[in-house]
Simulated scan of single mutants.
Amino acid sequence: MYNSLKIASLVAGLALPASMALAEGHGDIAADTVVATVNGTEITLGEMIITKAQLPQQYQQLPDEVLFTGVLDQLIQQQLLADTLEEVPSRLMVALANEERALRAGEVVDGIYQNAVSEEAIQAAYDARVAEMGDTMEWNASHILVETEEEAAEIKALVEGGADFAETAQERSTGPSGPNGGELGWFGPGMMVAPFEEAVTGMESGDVSDPVETQFGWHIVKLNDTRMQEAPSLDELRAELTQQLQEAALQARLDELGTTAEIDRPEDGAFDPSIISDLDLLED
Score class of each variant (00 low, 15 high):
residue 83 D to G: 06
residue 260 T to G: 10
residue 270 A to Y: 00
residue 209 S to Q: 03
residue 157 A to I: 01
residue 171 E to H: 10
residue 239 A to D: 13
residue 9 S to I: 14
residue 38 V to E: 01
residue 185 G to E: 07
residue 217 G to Y: 06
residue 203 M to T: 00
residue 31 A to H: 06
residue 116 A to Q: 06
residue 29 I to M: 12
residue 203 M to W: 00
residue 216 F to R: 14
residue 200 V to P: 06
residue 127 D to L: 12
residue 159 V to W: 03
residue 136 T to D: 04
residue 66 V to S: 08
residue 240 E to Q: 11
residue 231 A to F: 07
residue 15 A to C: 07
residue 109 V to L: 14
residue 240 E to W: 04
residue 33 T to S: 11
residue 115 N to T: 14
residue 251 Q to T: 12
residue 115 N to H: 14
residue 175 G to E: 03
residue 101 R to G: 13
residue 278 D to I: 00
residue 157 A to T: 13
residue 164 D to N: 15
residue 162 G to T: 04
residue 95 A to H: 08
residue 188 G to V: 05
residue 81 L to S: 07
residue 224 N to K: 06
residue 141 A to V: 08
residue 243 Q to L: 07
residue 216 F to P: 07
residue 154 E to V: 07
residue 228 M to S: 13
residue 70 G to D: 11
residue 249 A to Y: 01
residue 52 K to T: 12
residue 14 L to T: 15
residue 41 T to N: 12
residue 112 I to E: 10
residue 150 E to W: 01
residue 132 E to M: 12
residue 10 L to H: 03
residue 253 R to G: 09
residue 101 R to W: 12
residue 77 Q to G: 10
residue 226 T to V: 10
residue 241 L to C: 00
residue 168 T to P: 05
residue 92 L to E: 05
residue 42 E to Q: 11
residue 39 N to G: 04
residue 20 M to N: 13
residue 109 V to Y: 08
residue 39 N to Y: 01
residue 31 A to F: 00
residue 6 K to E: 13
residue 221 V to I: 14
residue 284 D to P: 05
residue 158 L to A: 11
residue 59 Y to H: 12
residue 268 D to A: 09
residue 156 K to D: 12
residue 248 A to L: 00
residue 206 G to V: 02
residue 116 A to S: 08
residue 87 E to M: 08
residue 141 A to I: 05
residue 148 T to S: 12
residue 231 A to V: 10
residue 37 T to D: 07
residue 206 G to W: 05
residue 247 E to A: 11
residue 226 T to D: 06
residue 19 S to A: 15
residue 40 G to I: 05
residue 117 V to T: 04
residue 122 I to R: 02
residue 24 E to M: 13
residue 76 I to G: 09
residue 183 E to M: 09
residue 88 V to A: 00
residue 169 A to P: 06
residue 219 H to I: 00
residue 186 W to D: 01
residue 136 T to L: 13
residue 179 P to C: 05
residue 275 I to D: 10
residue 145 L to V: 02
residue 278 D to C: 02
residue 95 A to S: 11
residue 230 E to F: 04
residue 124 A to D: 12
residue 243 Q to I: 00
residue 163 A to D: 10
residue 40 G to E: 04
residue 207 D to C: 03
residue 50 I to A: 10
residue 175 G to N: 02
residue 154 E to K: 12
residue 232 P to L: 01
residue 163 A to C: 08
residue 203 M to A: 04
residue 124 A to I: 06
residue 208 V to L: 09
residue 43 I to S: 01
residue 262 E to Q: 14
residue 157 A to V: 08
residue 29 I to G: 07
residue 266 P to Y: 05
residue 242 T to A: 03
residue 153 A to S: 13
residue 163 A to M: 03
residue 278 D to H: 01
residue 282 L to E: 01
residue 227 R to E: 00
residue 211 P to T: 06
